[in-house]
């Protein structure tokens, strides 16, 4: 796309509402293809990956305009190769970065050329890691990704949060009943022990009428259908990418690449 930016909208914005602020410009160090963003309400910071510069950028919560990040993880010790997504654990102060066959873990406050403090990697892990979520309440790390074909090889892998090395997942959610034909964004809801996963279908392009956001429990295992689906299948979602939650207002917020839109669903059942 033509223009990298982080646009910020009021919770109740809709239609062509003006953003309340934007983060953009050379000093921000942003690039396109930001496939993850995580807001940390405890420390009032947000975090984005920058795969073109192999870096992780941390911004102050209220950043606006052409503002430099307050911390940058970048350099030869980081092992960062294609940091496409990330997840942040504000309770245990860690940043998790998926690198397909491995997961790199950094201190949340890391800055500069720092090595990961843990690496989850090896054949027993079953990674494919494309997206990650952390549940500090149940002390879990959830990975979504695939080995082989995205359409039929995508799994949700549930690990102990502190697992490292060649460790088997505790539980694996996969199979035809799950409806998983490719995932993109992932978010946990720790108070409810839930995992929310965007399901844009097997392709990155076009629209997919079977798109939805699936909700599973962190206790689910095997070929189990989602407990809830949001926005479909056969709903308004066409290529859902990102997902986050607003527990106070009992809503689920979803970005959709095909619609170039952000949709807010009232979904009290999961809160």
């Amino acid at each position: 796309m033509s223009h990298p930016q982080i646009a910020v909208f009021a919770r109740v914005a809709e239609g062509n509402s003006n953003p309340t602020r934007k983060i953009e410009g050379q000093k921000t160090l942003l690039g396109r293809t930001m496939h993850a963003i995580s807001y940390d309400g405890i420390h009032d910071e947000f975090y984005v990956p920058q795969p073109f510069a192999q870096s992780i950028l941390t911004f102050a919560g209220g950043s606006s305009g052409e503002t430099a990040p307050i911390r940058v993880i970048e350099g030869s010790r980081t092992q960062l190769s294609n940091p496409d997504q990330l997840a942040v654990d504000p309770v245990n102060n860690e940043i998790f970065v998926p690198e397909r066959t491995k997961v790199l873990v950094f201190p949340r406050s890391a800055n500069g050329n720092v090595a990961p403090i843990r690496v989850l990697e090896g054949p027993d892990t079953m990674l494919g890691a494309f997206a990650l979520a952390v549940d500090p309440v149940h002390n879990l790390l959830i990975a979504a990704g695939w080995q082989g074909q995205r359409e039929n090889g995508t799994k949700l892998l549930i690990f102990n949060r502190t697992d490292e090395g060649n460790t088997k997942p505790l539980r694996v959610i996969s199979g035809p009943k799950t409806g998983i034909t490719g995932t993109f964004g992932l978010r946990s809801y720790p108070p409810g022990g839930l995992i929310l996963v965007t399901m844009p279908g097997p392709d990155y392009s076009g629209s997919h009428d079977g798109s939805f956001v699936g909700v599973w429990s962190v206790e689910d295992n095997g070929d189990v259908p989602p407990r809830w689906t949001i926005g479909g299948p056969h709903g308004m979602l066409k290529q859902p990418r990102g997902v986050d939650l607003d527990p106070k207002n009992k809503t689920v917020i979803i970005s959709d690449k095909f619609l170039n839109a952000v949709l807010t669903y009232y979904f009290p059942e999961i809160f």
């Binding site: 993850a36 995580s38 997504q85 990102g242 970005s255 170039n260």
Partner: peptide, 11 residues
Amino acid sequence: IGNPGSVAYDT
């Protein structure tokens, strides 16, 4: 907005 690959909520 162009290819919004993710979303986050600032609580």
